[in-house]
Amino acid sequence: MTDILPRPEAPAEARPASPGQRPRAAAQGSTIERQRRRLLVPFVGPAFLFYTVLFVVPAVAAVWISLNAWTGSGPMTFVGLQNYTAVFQDPLYLKSFGNTLLILFVVGIVIFVLAFAMTLLLRDMAGRKIIRSVIFFPHLVNALVFGILAGFVFNPGGLVNTLLRPLGVTSPPAWLAQDNLFPLIMATLVATSTGYFTTILMAAVDRIPPYLFEDCALAGATAFQRLRHVILPLTWDVFGTCAVLWTISSIKIFEIIWVFGGSSGSGIPPTQSWTTAVYTYVTAFSGMSTPAYGAATASAIISLALVSVLVILLRRLMHREAIEF
């Protein structure tokens, strides 16, 4: 996924040479080349159509909807940027936005530190394949499952409290109290996402040729020097990719919040643990109040803007001269 942002300059050799300077050797391939080009519509057309109608058109429509006051039925009223100023004055949205930022940065940093530490540990550890297989699996499981399980693990008569009782903890904290939910959610996210990023980082570290490590050993480099001068520079680009990946996926976090700790009576999670994705869904579809499609979409567009800015910043920040090895 290094190509998330445009990299317009393809290597010159890969481009079809202009007719005047076409080398003779390429002339043979020109028939199939020309035939291939005729396949543009039948090959790219269907994917283009599906993608445009079902993804691009809704995305563009979202920008328009966010500029209108609309309940979903009836007329739309153009209100300009009012939805945006309104959500930023809505304490619920500010809370959701804050939570999203907490997940993005705090959970993100913890995941990366842990994943990198685990990668270093696993590099030459016995049983690394088994461990890698096990820690990767949560990535394939719907986050709903972790949210529901947490409800059972932390409920008053649940696993954690029955474990604490013999240790003399008679009045354990109310884990699932509304104010405690969000920290628990953050911890659960760390526990279930770290394995995925560890797997990616491991693949990157494995690509470092072993002779570099042997050189380090011969030169008497300390573990820290090896980390600083060999491992980090050679995996830097993968770190950047992982950071982009986390940014994009963390902004969509919804289902684990929706069910975490079991369901409250109304079916909507307590507002203390909302993220912007939850805010968007509830504002449009909860059925509790008049749906406000404009405000809901404005909240989603702000998330998109956040992702875009962060991805561009990350690309700038993490960009280094690629090291060939």
Binding site: M1, D3, I4, P6, V44, A47, F48, Y51, L54, F55, V56, V57, P58, A59, A61, A62, I65, G72, I248, I251, K252, F254, T276, A277, T280, Y281, A284, F285, Y293, A296, T297, S299, A300, I301, S303, L304, V307, S308, V311
Partner: peptide, 23 residues
């Protein structure tokens, strides 16, 4: 075209949720 397709990777699903529902 590649860029056109790839841009979709960065768009969170909640952006298209409401327009897609309406459509």
């Amino acid at each position: 075209l590649s860029l056109y397709f790839i841009l979709g990777l960065g768009i969170p699903v909640q952006v298209i949720l409401i327009p897609l529902f309406v459509m």
